[in-house]
């Protein structure tokens, strides 16, 4: 499916998708509150979640989910804007199993809370670690070398 066909197809699955222009792959922006229903609606067409990324924009966070269909080979990028003070979004680890580890990574390094996650703990850092290392305002005088 090309981008336009995919757009039309998504319009039948989702109530009012918001498309972002100019990117390599079709990108939709969603309200974090709608993520669970969106994920369930697109799960059949996009069965392979290959990348989960959090981005710190200083004023807000963005969660980026890269999805592909293993049968039709079309790719979709889903973005959700999260609050900077209390970043939280519903987990999709019950929908795509790979999300469990990816979300733990995002929690560990960015402090994004995934509600209803079965096992939300730090993944790389030790349990008693303070702060969220990949945030832009993170300071660590011992382990960070400023260039």
């Amino acid at each position: 499916m090309n981008k336009e066909e995919l757009k039309e197809h998504l319009a039948t699955l989702l109530p009012s998708p918001t498309f972002e222009e100019g990117a390599e792959w079709l990108t939709i922006t969603i309200d974090p509150a709608e993520w669970e229903s969106t994920a369930k609606a697109i799960r059949k067409d996009f069965d392979y979640l290959f990348c989960v990324t959090a981005v710190d924009w200083r004023t807000h966070f963005t969660m980026v989910y890269h999805l592909t269909s293993t049968t039709h080979r079309h790719t979709l990028v889903v973005k959700a804007k999260l609050d900077h003070e209390n970043p939280a979004i519903r987990t999709v680890s019950d929908i795509w199993r790979t999300a469990e580890f990816h979300e733990r990574e995002a929690f560990d390094l960015f402090g994004v809370v995934f509600t209803d996650h079965p096992d939300l703990r730090r993944l790389f850092m030790t349990d008693e670690w303070n702060g969220w290392p990949l945030r832009k305002d993170y300071e660590d005088p011992v382990n960070m070398i400023k260039l």
Partner: peptide
């Protein structure tokens, strides 16, 4: 962001 193959393979 680096999407590493081992990370996802290990989760299974």
């Amino acid at each position: 962001k680096f999407r590493s193959p081992g990370f996802s393979n290990l989760s299974a």
